[in-house]
Computed example of a mutant assay.
Amino acid sequence: MYKRILVPVDGSETCEKALASALQLAKESQGRVHLVHVLDELAYLTGYEYSADLLQVARDFAQKVLVDAADKARAAGVPADTKLMELPGGRLGELIAGEARNWDADLVVVGTHGRRGVSRVLLGSGAEQVLRLSPVPVLAVRSSEPA
């Protein structure tokens, strides 16, 4: 079964559902989770003097997301480690796929909002990128309702 499960987390309700599923799988297989949060620095750089402040707030939030996820893993009795990854203008799917290879993951568990139509085209789909590029199986956990 799956012993090394990579879980991208962002603090959203959908990712919380994915994390719960990953923790259940890891507990049943006596596995472990690798919790990653991807920070896109370019999204916070505005050219104004407050850009550095915004980036620090984003880093602080990212660390909190990782700590909260690790606390949930610990409460579930699942070994976990965390990693903050920075994405300077790259593609989320490529970064997660690379981390899955580097960490030797057996499975990636992602949350997906299940967007369709125009909202999917405009907002993109990080989960779809991961599905297409991952070197290992991917479990996509949907939010309760398609967006």
Rank of each mutant, 00 (worst) to 15 (best):
M1S: 14
A140D: 01
G90W: 09
R59M: 07
L87C: 10
V109E: 02
L95S: 00
E28M: 15
P137T: 03
V108I: 11
S12M: 10
D60K: 09
G117F: 08
L42T: 12
V33T: 10
E16Y: 13
K27L: 14
Q56N: 11
L133T: 06
G93K: 02
L6S: 07
G114K: 00
S134E: 07
L122W: 06
E28C: 08
H37S: 07
S21R: 15
H34I: 08
E145P: 03
H34Y: 14
A69C: 01
R91F: 13
Q30E: 15
G98Y: 00
V57D: 15
S125Y: 01
S119R: 15
D106E: 11
G47H: 05
W103D: 09
M85T: 04
L131Y: 00
R116H: 14
V110M: 04
L123R: 13
A127N: 00
D53M: 11
K64Q: 13
L92I: 11
Q129Y: 01
A76F: 11
T112R: 03
E16V: 13
L25Q: 08
P137R: 00
D106R: 03
L39M: 06
G111H: 01
Q129G: 08
G11M: 05
D40N: 12
A26E: 01
R4Q: 13
Q63C: 10
E49I: 08
L133C: 09
S144Y: 14
V67D: 13
S12K: 11
Q24W: 15
E13K: 15
L95H: 02
E28A: 14
L131W: 05
S134I: 04
S21W: 14
N102S: 15
A105S: 10
F61Y: 14
L123F: 11
V78S: 04
L19V: 01
W103M: 10
T46M: 10
A100M: 05
I5W: 00
Q63Y: 12
V7N: 04
K3T: 13
L35I: 05
S134H: 04
G90N: 11
R116N: 15
K27M: 13
G47L: 04
D10R: 04
T112L: 07
V33Q: 02
P8L: 01
L25S: 08
C15G: 13
Q30F: 14
E99G: 11
V138P: 02
A52G: 12
D40H: 05
T112V: 12
T14P: 06
G117L: 07
F61S: 10
